[in-house]
Amino acid sequence: MESVDYQQLVSEHRDRIFTFAFYTLRHREDAEDVTQDVLIRLWNHRQRLDGDRVGAWLSRVTRNACYDVSRRRRVRNAVHPSDPEPQLERATCVEPTPDRSAEAAEFRRNLESALRDMSEPYRSIVIMREIQGASYQEIAEALERPLNTVKVYLHRARRMLRHALAEEEAHVRAS
């Protein structure tokens, strides 16, 4: 793969890598670091990559890099428990606007929280499929799981989100 192709790949995939890292880590600067790491790995492996599978490869590498960051966070918190937890960020403005009611903003906020608390691989599948619009095939390659398993996991993940939001709504109504 030539350098021009590398630049093209970076242009095509950088936002996608960053989006996945951001929704996984919920921390913008950590997501930037992960994206830079992944782009460096892409450069280092550019000669060996199959052009048709670069997307899946990048998703896999990004996911592993996010996992490493999370692991370092846990180690750092264990060694320095007094350090403040990184402030988790939200992707959207939740302030009510004329065209977005407070209820809708609250729903979006609860949805993001439920997604953040979701376990793997469900969260990765939801991010890749629903937010990034990846195909089932691409997700299956990235996660190295059968395609039908990805479909089942996606539906299961969205059901988990739905139940979490229904519980939250019931809790609000009860209080």
Binding site: D15, Y23, E32, L111, E130
Partner: peptide, 24 residues
Amino acid sequence: SLAQRVRGSLRELPAQAFPPSLLP
């Protein structure tokens, strides 16, 4: 209705743009 709303809201979550200043 809730399932449809969850899917719709997920798809409305914005993609994040990687800052161009951090590109090599």
